[in-house]
């Protein structure tokens, strides 16, 4: 077993990642932050390959090949501005009666500015009662998060939000 699994419970927000990017890669932003300039250190593009809108589109094409995407039904709730790029709350809520005849089968979440386009995939059942879930995700930079709900009928619905990642400071 990898020793990491022995990790004692640490606060959810609190890994020792100060000065590291949302994906644990040291960035110039991280270096600035460690140097104490964080109040005015800009969000500098991390030196890693990041997913693009095209990659997200490719991934969605693979999953949903050619099906039309409806609007509405699915609500993606995230803060407009991330307070901590390492831990950004994300809440998904799909409007559905969640009966055997009509329920939400799955929800796929993508991000176009992280190293990988996929974030999470949920599988619901009528026993869920409500097609709603919350988790917390990393955001390497300001980007779009896209969620696609797949209904038991095969119908798809999507929602997209932009979340801003800023270093902040100056508020007053």
């Amino acid at each position: 077993m990898p020793p990491r699994l022995d990790a004692t419970l640490v606060p959810t927000r609190g890994l020792p990642t100060r000065g590291l990017s949302a994906h644990g890669l040291p960035t110039r932003r991280g270096a600035l932050k460690l140097a104490g300039l964080a109040a005015f250190a800009a969000v500098l593009a991390p030196r890693m390959a990041l997913a693009t809108e095209a990659q997200v589109a490719d991934e969605m094409k693979k999953l949903f090949a050619g099906k039309t995407m409806g609007a509405g039904k699915i609500k993606l709730d995230m803060p407009e501005i991330a307070e901590n790029g390492l831990v950004v709350p994300i809440n998904i809520d799909v409007d559905s009666p969640m009966t055997e005849a009509d329920f939400v089968k799955s929800v796929h979440v993508f991000a176009d500015g992280n190293p990988l386009p996929q974030v999470v995939t949920y599988h619901f059942t009528p026993e869920s009662g409500k097609a709603s879930a919350s988790t917390r995700m990393r955001l390497a930079q300001t980007q779009n998060v896209i969620a696609v709900a797949e209904m038991s009928s095969g119908q798809l619905y999507s929602a997209k939000v932009q979340v801003k990642v800023t270093i902040g400071g100056c508020g007053g």
């Binding site: 606060p11 994906h23 974030v119 999470v120 988790t135």
Partner: peptide, 10 residues
């Protein structure tokens, strides 16, 4: 839930 690498620690 299938989690990918974008999911936060803990």
């Amino acid at each position: 839930a299938e989690w990918f690498t974008s999911i936060s620690a803990n």
